[in-house]
Design a protein around this nucleic acid. Structure first.
Lengths: 189, 189
DNA sequence: GTCTATAAGCAGATAGAC
DNA sequence: GTCTATCTGCTTATAGAC
């Protein structure tokens, strides 16, 4: 049971509010009120609203980057890599579900240098995933559909998982992983 | 080549801006500037910013509602219904791609009565889709995975299609439909 | 570390002239 | 139908007392 700093508390509270109402709709007063302090007091711990956003988004973006690099470096088949990516997404969703709202919906409000860092990480991530799929098609492990359609279909599902996790979070994670992998890889019929 | 009213023009311009920056970030001044008029002039055609949002969202929501009702009433197998739903989503995405950003991301900013109307339509839509899937499982047409996982997986992909359509809109729609149906229904392997 | 007070700017919206 | 001028309230952020 670790004690969290005031800055970490701000980020935690802000993540929840951003998840509920979106970055632009949440004011510094809203965040302060939720912590039972005044808005001005926040500025003793953080430099501004932008900093809260970038701390939330970049931390999770780095988790995805590291996770994907780990999968890529493993010596397993393409299909097994896809499975690992799906499982990694589910794990990160469980640990950072509220932060994922900002990452998915509010990344465009990052300020310039953080914005380009985020976009770079996101593009690299997609490119790594694309390579896995293309390799799987070349090796005959994956059916030769348009690789972009496959990439998009899996990524959209994984990226919006955080929305669904909050509503039906009770579902056992192992069952979720098993069924999600099965549905995405083996299809419906 | 139909001439559009000033009100329709406002809604069209606003849809594009909401797609690019989100409802909360776009000001009435932004919309007016994009039309080369002053913000005050907008109020001669619409009652306020909220009205612009509800016009955009509810129109498309009704398209989905009607489309789903048509599919449900057809006398075809569950798998064929799923195919029809996917094709309908692709058609609506092509026709209303910018409006779909507001529908997906800004529906929570609708005012009370429009908000509840939208939520009702959305829930009915999901329930109809859920019934199709459950029926398919009962009839043995669809594998007996958790129906919520199947529903969520297909819906997430279809709901974020508008993002992808803008980037790679050049792809032939018939190829997209064929591959999307194949990937979502038959899977990767 | 939190407070009060306040600055400077932008938001949605209205009144009334043309 | 569009304009200018303006109102009211909220935004992020800072200064300085305690």
């Amino acid at each position: 049971m670790k004690t969290i700093s005031r800055k970490e508390e701000i980020i935690q509270v802000a993540s929840r509010l951003f998840y509920e109402k979106g970055y632009k709709t949440v004011s510094m007063r809203d965040i302060a009120t939720a912590m039972d302090i005044k808005a001005a007091s926040l500025y003793n711990h953080i430099n501004g609203k932008q900093e809260i956003l970038s701390e939330i988004i970049l931390k999770v973006a780095e988790e995805f980057t590291v996770g994907m690099e780990n999968v890529v470096s493993e010596k397993i088949s393409a299909i097994e890599k896809v499975e690992k990516v799906i499982e990694m997404h589910i794990d990160i969703t469980v640990n950072y579900s509220e932060a994922l709202a900002a990452l998915n919906n509010d990344w465009m409000h990052l300020e310039k240098s953080n914005l380009s860092a985020f976009v770079k990480m996101r593009e690299d991530y997609e490119e790594n995933f694309r390579k896995i799929i293309k390799q799987g098609i070349e090796m005959g492990e994956i059916k030769a559909h348009h690789p972009e359609v496959i990439l998009f279909s899996i990524l959209s599902t994984l990226r919006t998982l955080y929305l669904w996790y909050q509503k039906r979070g009770k579902l056992d994670m192992n069952i979720l992983k098993r069924d999600m992998v099965a549905v995405l890889i083996k299809g419906l019929i």
